[in-house]
Design a protein around this nucleic acid. Structure first.
Lengths: 214, 214, 214, 214
DNA sequence: AATGAATGAGCGTTCATTCAT
DNA sequence: CATGAATGAACGCTCATTCAT
C-alpha cells in the first residue's frame, strides 16, 4: 500500500505541478493563432486535454490566464541573453550578431516567438500586462543591446550613433520576423521565405551600417 | 426656392455617399485600438455618430466591414509611393530616404498607420483578406523598394546585397514603428519616443549599411 | 393643360384607389406562403412594387395590414354562397353539391383559398381578428349549410343527422383541401393530387352518407 | 452512504437524459400556440424551467429544435394505429371507427394534436421537415387507412370508391378537428363544441356513405 | 403621395464563469 | 482534484416603424 502510494503519488504530483505550464502552453498557442478575444476557453481546455472547469482551478479568469501566458513566456528569453553578455569577451560585432542569431535559435520554432505579436495586439486592452512586459522584457532587452552598442562604440568598432534610438532600429527587424512568422506566413500569403537569410542580411547591413571602417 | 432645393436636397445625398467612408474610418480606429473581435459594433456606430442598424445599410456583416476597412486603407499609400518612384531622378540614396520619410509624413499621425498592426493580428482569422493585403500592399511595396535597391546597385551606390531579403530588412523598422505607435506607446508603456529620430537613425544605419564607400 | 389634367388625374386616382387592394393582395400571398411573423414588410412592399414607407400610408402597422388582408379576403366568398341559396329551387342534394363545387371554382386557384390556413395559424396570436373571422365567415357559412341540411331533412332527402355537428364534418374536407393546397402541395411533398377528384369523392360519400335511401 | 450515492448520483444523469424531451415538449406547446417564428427561445426555456443557454446544449439552433419537436411527436401515433390494424379481426367498419376514435383518445388532450397545425403552417418554410413528415406520417397513415378501405371493399361492406382519394376525405375531418382545437377553440371564438359528437357524426356519415346497403 | 435612409428594441446565439457531483 | 451541465450577460444581426426630403 505504501509502495503504491509512493509510486502513484509522484505521478500525480508531477502532473499537478506541470498542469499550469501545460495550460499556458495550450493557451499561448491559441492566443497567438487567433488573438485573445477570439480564443475560446473550450478550445484551450481541449488542446490541453482537460475539461473547461479545470482551467478555473488554476486561473481565476481568462485575463489571469493571459497574464500567466505572458509571464511564463518571458523568463527563458532574458536570462539567456544576459548570460551571453556576461560571458562574452572580445569584439562587439561578434557579440551583437551572436545575440541576434541565438535569439532565433531559441525561439524561432516555438510559439514563444508569437508573444510579440500577441503582446502588440493586446497591449491596448491590457495596459497592466503591457507595462509588466515593457518593464521586464523590452526594458531589459534595451539595456542588453545598449551595453553592446556602447561597448562597440567605446572600442571604436561602431560609429557614434544615437544609441537609444539605434537599439529600436536593430531590434525591429528581429521582431518583425517573429511577427510575420505568426501572421502572414501561416496563411501561405507570402511573408518571410527564409528566416536564416533574413537574419544574415540584417546582420550584414547592420554591421556595415555601424562600422567605422569607411 | 431653387436655392433651397439646391442646397437642401443634396444634404441627404451627400451624407449617403460619405457614409461608408465615415463608418470605415470609425471602424478602423476601433479595430486598431482594440482588435477586431474585441470591438463592438455598437461602439463603431456610436463613434460614427449613427445607430447600430445603420451599419447594416452599408455593410452586410462585421466581417464585410473589416474587409472594407482594409480596402479603404490601402489605396492612398501605394499611389503616392509609386508616383515618387516614377518622378524621381538622381541618386538612389535620396530616393530611398525620401520614400521612408514620406511614408511617415503621410500616415504617421493617422490611424491608417494602424493597419499593419490590425492586419498582422487578424491575418490568421481572415485568410482571404490577408491574401488580398499581401497581393495589393505587401507585394507592390516590395516591388517599389526592389526597384530602388536595384537602381542603387546598378549605379554602384549600394553594395550587391540580397535584394529580396534586404527589402524586408529595410521595411521592418518602418512597420515596427507604426505598430509600436498603436500598441505600446498609447499605454504610456514606453516604446517609441521620437519617430523622427527613429527614422533618421534608420536611414543613417541603412545608407551606411548599403554604401559601397569603405 | 386641362386635357392633360383630365387624362392624368383619373389615372392617378384610379391608382390611388386601387393601392390598398394591391397591397393586401401582395400581403395575402406572402402571409399565406410564409406565415405572418415570417413575412417581412420589405418583401410585401417589393411584391406590390412600392417602397416600404408607402405601406404605412395605407396601414398603420403590420397588424392592421393583417386585419385588412382578412377583411378583404372574406367578402367575395359569402355573397356568392348566399345568393346561390336564395336562388335555388329543387332538391337539397343538388344545392349542396353545387355549393361545394362552386366554392372551389371561385377560390381554388387564387390565394384567397390560403386564408383558412393563415387564419388557423394566427388565430391564437390575433384573437380579435379570429373573432371577426368567426362571426363573419364561419358563422355565416354554418348558417348557409345549416339551411341546406335542414331543407334536405325536411324534404326527406337526408337522414335526421345532428345538423350543427354535421355542418363541421361537411366543411372540414373542403377546408383541408384548401389548406393542403397551400402547405404540403407546394413543397412537392405530396398532398392533394387532384382537387376535382377529391371534391367528387367527398360529395359522393357525403350524399350517400346523408341519403335516406337504404 | 451508499444509498445516498445511489440516489443522488443519478439525479444529474437522469436529468440530462430527460432534458431533450422536456425541452421539445415545452417547444411543441409554444410552437403550436404561437407558430414557429413568433415563439421566442426565452419563452421555450422559461416554460421548460431552464435558462436560454441550456437549449443550446441540446439543440444547435432554433431550426434543429423544430425538427426535433416534429420527430419526437410522430412516433407514438403511428405505432398504435399499425398495431390496431395488425390485431384486428372481423368487419372493416368496426376497425375504421375504432381507429378514428382511438386516435382522438390518444392525442386529443395533448399538444401532440397540435402538430398538424404546426406542420401545415411551417411546411413552406421547412421543406425538408415537410418531406420527412410526409414520408413518415402522412404516407404511413395513408397506407393504414388504405388497407382498411380495401378490406371493407373486399368484404363487400364498402362500396367501390376511389380508395386513394377517399382516404384523404376520411382523414380530413379528423385533422380539421385537431386543428380547430388548437386555433379557433382556444380563442373562445367558437369552433368545435364537442369533439366526441363530431367524431360520432363523422363516423356515422362515413359508414353510411361507404355502406353497400341501399 | 411617395420615398428610402435611419432608428432601436428585440431576438438568436455565444461563451466566460459557476457549482453540484 | 476534476468534470461538464447550467447559467446569463453580452454581442451580432433583423426588421417594424419613423420622418426628412
Amino acid at each position: 500500500m505504501n509502495q503504491q502510494t509512493n509510486s502513484a503519488a509522484p505521478t500525480r504530483q508531477r502532473r499537478k505541478e506541470a498542469r499550469p505550464a501545460e495550460l499556458t502552453a495550450a493557451a499561448l498557442e491559441l492566443f497567438v493563432e487567433r488573438g485573445f478575444a477570439a480564443t475560446k476557453l473550450d478550445d484551450v481546455a481541449a488542446r490541453a486535454g482537460v475539461s473547461k472547469g479545470t482551467l478555473y482551478l488554476y486561473f481565476a479568469s481568462k485575463e489571469e490566464l493571459f497574464k500567466a501566458v505572458i509571464q511564463q513566456g518571458i523568463l527563458p528569453v532574458l536570462e539567456e541573453g544576459e548570460a551571453m553578455l556576461a560571458q562574452h569577451q572580445g569584439d562587439a560585432s561578434t557579440l551583437l550578431s551572436g545575440l541576434l542569431l541565438r535569439w532565433w535559435e531559441l525561439l524561432g520554432g516555438t510559439s514563444l516567438s508569437g508573444i510579440p505579436k500577441l503582446m502588440i495586439a493586446e497591449a491596448g486592452n491590457f495596459p497592466e500586462v503591457a507595462r509588466y512586459y515593457h518593464d521586464n522584457v523590452i526594458q531589459r532587452a534595451h539595456e542588453l543591446f545598449g551595453q553592446v552598442l556602447r561597448k562597440g562604440i567605446a572600442r571604436k568598432e561602431f560609429r557614434k550613433v544615437d544609441v537609444e534610438t539605434a537599439i529600436d532600429v536593430i531590434i525591429a527587424p528581429q521582431l518583425m520576423m517573429a511577427i510575420w512568422q505568426h501572421s502572414m506566413t501561416p496563411c501561405s500569403c507570402g511573408g518571410m521565405k527564409d528566416p536564416a537569410a533574413f537574419i544574415r542580411t540584417h546582420i550584414d547591413l547592420l554591421l556595415n551600417g555601424l562600422s567605422t571602417k569607411e
